[in-house]
C-alpha cells in the first residue's frame, strides 16, 4: 500500500472510532426511545449545520489548487444542491424532517442560531478561510464524509423506533448512501495530495478539528434535550464537586425571583447577538468571493 493510501486508511479508522463520531448521545439515540419532541430539539440544533455545509464547499471550491480537488468538491456540491434527491436540496430535506418532528423550518430560519451550532459553524468557517486549503479539505472531506454515515447509522434506528416514516427521515438515509459515495470519491482525490508529511499533517489537523467541534456540538445538543425535559435540572447536577459555600450561593441565587429574571434576560440578550441562518450564509458567501 502506498504511503498516501496507508495514511488515508489509518485516518478512516481514526475517524470512525473518534469520540465525536461515537458520542454518547448518538449511542443513546440508538439504544433508548426518544420522542418526536426530543428529536425536534435535536433537529432545531442540527439544521443550521445542514444549511451551512454547502457554503464551506463553495469557499473551498474557489481556493482549490487544481481541477482534481475542484471536481470532487463540485460533485459533492451537486449532490447537496439536490441531484440524487429529486431536486430537493439537503436543507429542504432536513426542513421536512423538522416539520415531521413538529417544528417550523421557517421560524428556525428567522431565529438566532443555537449556541452549539453557532460554535461549530464558526470553527468551520475559520478552518475554511484562515487555514491552508488542505486543512479545510480535511475538515469537510474526511471530517464530514467519513464521519456522517457512522453517526447517522446510530440515529436512524431511533428515528424508526419513534415512528417516523422513511420519507420523513430520507435526509438521514440518503446521507448514509451518498456519503459512502462521497467518501470513496474523496479517497481518490486525496490520494494525490496526501503524499508528503506536511500535507498529511494538514489533512489530519482539519479532520480532527472538525471532529472535536462535532463532539462539542453533540454535548450541546445533549444538554438542550435534557434542558427541554427538565428546564432547571442541569444546575443541581454538577458532575464536579462543589464547595459548601458554592452550593449555598447557587441555591440563594435560585431562590431570588429577580435573579432568575436577570438570568433569563441575559440569556436572551446573548441569544439576540447570535446571527440567524441566512445571516451566517450571506457572511460566509461574501467572504468566499
Amino acid at each position: 500500500m502506498s504511503n498516501a493510501r496507508k495514511f488515508l486508511a489509518d485516518r478512516r479508522t481514526e475517524i470512525e472510532t473518534h469520540p465525536g463520531v461515537n458520542h454518547l448521545l448518538l449511542n443513546r439515540l440508538a439504544t433508548a426511545p426518544f420522542s418526536r419532541e426530543d428529536y425536534q430539539v435535536l433537529a432545531e440544533n442540527h439544521i443550521p449545520l445542514v444549511c451551512m455545509f454547502t457554503s464551506y464547499l463553495e469557499v473551498l471550491l474557489l481556493r482549490a489548487p487544481d481541477s482534481a480537488a475542484r471536481l470532487w468538491l463540485a460533485k459533492v456540491l451537486v449532490d447537496e444542491y439536490g441531484e440524487g434527491s429529486d431536486g430537493h436540496d439537503h436543507a429542504t430535506l432536513y426542513g421536512d424532517f423538522l416539520t415531521a418532528c413538529g417544528g417550523d423550518p421557517k421560524a428556525v430560519q428567522k431565529g438566532a442560531v443555537p449556541r452549539p451550532a453557532f460554535e461549530f459553524i464558526r470553527t468551520h468557517r475559520d478552518l475554511m478561510r484562515q487555514r491552508p486549503f488542505l486543512v479545510g479539505l480535511g475538515a469537510v472531506g474526511p471530517g464530514h464524509e467519513w464521519a456522517i454515515p457512522k453517526m447517522f447509522e446510530a440515529i436512524i434506528p431511533g428515528l424508526r423506533r419513534a415512528g417516523f416514516s422513511e420519507g420523513e427521515i430520507s435526509y438521514f438515509t440518503l446521507h448514509v448512501e451518498q456519503d459512502d459515495d462521497h467518501g470513496s470519491w474523496l479517497e481518490e482525490a486525496l490520494a494525490d495530495y496526501a503524499d508528503t508529511a506536511e500535507a498529511q499533517a494538514q489533512i489530519r489537523e482539519g479532520a480532527m478539528a472538525s471532529l472535536e467541534a462535532r463532539r462539542r456540538f453533540w454535548d450541546g445538543v445533549q444538554r438542550a434535550i435534557v434542558r427541554y425535559r427538565q428546564p432547571r435540572a442541569i444546575r443541581p447536577d454538577g458532575p464536579l464537586p462543589r464547595s459548601v459555600p458554592k452550593e449555598l450561593l447557587i441555591t440563594a441565587w435560585d431562590g431570588i425571583p429577580g435573579a432568575r429574571r436577570v438570568e433569563t434576560r441575559l440569556r436572551s440578550l446573548l441569544r439576540s447577538r447570535r446571527p440567524d441562518i441566512p445571516g451566517l450564509l450571506a457572511h460566509a458567501r461574501s467572504v468566499g468571493r
Binding site: 426511545p33 426518544f34 420522542s35 418526536r36 419532541e37 426530543d38 423506533r161 419513534a162 415512528g163 427541554y228 425535559r229 427538565q230 428546564p231 432547571r232 435540572a233 444546575r235 443541581p236 452550593e247 447557587i250 441555591t251 435560585d254 431562590g255
Partner: peptide, 26 residues
C-alpha cells in the same frame, strides 16, 4: 441541594415533561 431538588419535584410539570411523548408514543 434538597431545596433546589424540592423546587423541581414540587412542580407536577416536571413529571409530565419527563414522560411527554413517551406514553403510548415510542
Amino acid at each position: 441541594r434538597t431545596w433546589r431538588f424540592q423546587r423541581l419535584v414540587r412542580d407536577p410539570q416536571t413529571f409530565l415533561r419527563d414522560e411527554e411523548g413517551l406514553l403510548n408514543g415510542p
